[in-house]
Write a protein that binds this DNA or RNA. Structure first.
Lengths: 206, 206
DNA sequence: TAGATTGTTAATCGATTAACAATC
DNA sequence: TAGATTGTTAATCGATTAACAATC
């Protein structure tokens, strides 16, 4: 298959596949099929095979996919076959929960920098880190070659924080603040806002 | 316009529009246009007008949209012109952050029930609630007519918790556990997993 | 071999966009 | 009136699915 632009919607499904494969692998399963995977995720088997076909041939006719191999390939494609350092900004409730969350490392990430704007928090230790002044963010991100930021700052401050991240060379931002960020087009943003997720479901309630 | 099935992808954009409108309203702005809104959100103005047109005519030629009126309409469409009670399961770091989060009420939700499986936590007060035994979840959800659940339990327990929610009549589940849930098809699920969001962006990094 | 499942093609389906009449 | 912007149609674009030859 020749290289063409891969649709972003396909990229978006790969982490979901990877997560399902981890669950299967954790249960000791070694082989799966597009049909089984689709069943589990509510996606058609044809779509799963089509998605994979953008990147190569990972299965075997008549048998299916070896889970460990498929995981390896998806990790390589998504570039999470390494550990990306991430900057966290805003050490409130959400920020602290993120720091204590143990699920980052084995899925390709770790929090390398922690920032806040509150003088009472700056200098405090948190986990193995020290909370730093958000003003120093751009230079620190650049120095340590950190390309990913998680913003858990208040909504009012979030755009300003995003600007600092961009200044620091951020190329990917995960935003927990309930506002839309404006960033240069070469910077990716993902949003986590529980309320928008809930509002998306209430439409269907009686 | 006659009623036809509205695409889910359209429904998914309405909360984003609503959030952007709130920011504008908060800044004292009274009028906006599909062009301005699209600019802010990185969506074409045609798409925004098309999305609205599924539900009615909310604007005025030559002028645009009155923000307060458009908010009202979107809230009505999404059914967040009321306050939905939500059950929260798992009072760990994430659960506590959700309970302390002040952004639910004015956007259509409040946490009405809190559950955990840990005997040390059951019976403890949290905010204005008391942590209850998750075993009692089905009856409590039914009694209090709660249709929405947020699962912040460990991955290992999440499917079991989801089953309890379904048993309690849940019709919408927001799942923070990093696994895919299997539920009846009349139950909606949304996923919040920071790692899948991050993995979706690393693909594009150098 | 018989059965199963892949990878891929072509057809279908659905979503986005361009364009413009209507009209404020 | 002139300028601006809506709501809507038709065209375009892209994603999903059905089907099947290839083959393990």
């Amino acid at each position: 298959m020749a290289y063409t632009e891969i649709p972003d919607i396909v990229i978006g499904r790969l982490p979901v596949y990877l997560r399902a494969l981890s669950v299967m692998a954790g249960a000791g399963q070694e082989i799966t099929s597009s049909h089984e995977l689709g069943e589990k995720l509510g996606i058609s088997s044809a779509q799963i095979r089509k998605d994979f076909s953008h990147f190569g041939e990972f299965g075997k006719q008549g048998t299916g996919y070896r889970i460990s191999y498929l995981q390896e390939q998806l990790r390589r494609i998504l570039k999470v076959d390494r550990e990306w350092p991430v900057a966290l900004i805003g050490i409130g409730d959400v920020g602290q929960a993120l720091i204590r969350y143990g699920g980052f490392r084995d899925r390709g990430f770790h929090i390398a920098l922690a920032f806040d704007a509150d003088p009472a928090k700056i200098g405090q230790p948190i986990d193995t880190l020290t909370i730093q002044d958000v003003c120093t963010l751009p230079e620190q991100m650049r120095e340590q070659n950190v390309l990913i930021a998680m913003i858990a700052a208040p909504a009012k401050a979030a755009q300003e924080v995003a600007d600092l991240c961009v200044k620091g060379g951020a190329r990917a931002i995960l935003n927990y603040a309930p506002i839309n960020l404006t960033v240069p087009e070469d910077v990716r943003v993902q949003y986590i806002d529980p309320v928008t997720h809930l509002q998306r479901m209430t439409y269907y309630l009686a």
